[in-house]
């Protein structure tokens, strides 16, 4: 507990940096997310969003700065370790097996079993029921959990992946551009489930390049540009217009407007 009144952040990064050889991928990023909060990380392509994800997910170690999980200083060395600490990452290219039914996908790798000896088998009724119930708790009414997950839309698949992480005890959900490939309506659906996860007490790190989506749900906004942090705001501290302007590069956008203007 670092402060009184407010619980310690689930994840706290202070001045975190990462170099690949002599390329500086990330420099001095400070970020925190507490239970029931959504921290949005905004940035253009190449801003360092992926590097940041990989550090939080345990794929890469940071070189500098401090990463605290539940207030304890940590060096994550593997995705498994991150998972064990309750950090679940849902990647953009979703990790599902398209031809398998939703319920088989939901429990893949963590199948509950019953029976003994050679008759040990998956508890299929429990799996079906749990999948349906967990999705319903997230507000997804799936009539048929037996349909191949490949028949679901991109947004629905994203939601199943989120529900799965919540069910298996994630405390922090890291979402990599969950709305990037989706239409307006589908994006809205996904953001609703992100909010549902937040309401269930999870901390969410939402990576996006869409300031409108970020502002709809975010409590904090971290802006990255070319590997460095150019802004860290709470919701009270910034308006959507300011966020959009900063995201678009402010003065860069002004210059572009000037360049493109008709004579």
């Amino acid at each position: 507990m670092t402060t009184t009144g407010r619980p310690a952040p689930l994840i706290e990064l202070t001045g975190v940096s990462k170099r690949y050889g002599n390329v500086r991928a990330l420099e001095g990023v400070t970020l925190e997310v507490g239970p029931g909060e959504i921290t949005c990380v905004l940035g253009d392509n190449g801003a360092g969003k992926s590097t940041l994800i990989k550090i939080i997910a345990g794929l890469h170690r940071h070189d500098d700065g401090v990463l605290r999980v539940d207030g304890e200083e940590t060096l994550l060395s593997s995705p498994r370790q991150a998972l064990d600490l309750g950090i679940a990452t849902v990647y953009q290219d979703l990790a599902v097996v398209p031809l398998m039914p939703v319920w088989r996908n939901f429990f893949l790798g963590s199948e509950p079993r019953k029976g003994v000896g050679p008759f040990k088998r998956m508890d299929i009724d429990l799996m079906r029921e749990t999948t349906r119930a967990e999705l319903l708790r997230m507000g997804i009414d799936l009539r048929d959990v037996d349909q191949p997950i490949g028949t679901l839309s991109g947004g629905e698949r994203q939601c199943v992946a989120i529900a799965r992480a919540v069910h298996f005890g994630a405390k922090v959900l890291v979402l990599d551009e969950p709305t990037a490939a989706l239409g307006v309506k589908q994006s809205g659906v996904v953001l609703k489930y992100v909010a549902a996860a937040r309401d269930r007490g999870l901390g969410v790190v939402l990576i996006t390049h869409n300031p409108h989506h970020a502002y709809l749900v975010g409590d904090r906004f971290v802006l990255l540009r070319r590997g460095t942090m150019v802004g860290n705001h709470t919701r009270d501290g910034i308006t959507l217009e300011e966020l959009t302007a900063q995201m678009a590069g402010g003065s860069d956008l002004e210059a572009l407007r000037h360049e493109l203007a008709r004579d």
């Binding site: 398209p98 088989r104 893949l108 998956m122 299929i124």
Partner: peptide
């Protein structure tokens, strides 16, 4: 009916996932 069966479908359907 078994966990192994689930794995068989999965390794054939999407090994990386």
């Amino acid at each position: 009916r078994t966990r192994v069966g689930n794995w068989i479908f999965a390794v054939g359907g999407n090994k990386d996932a």
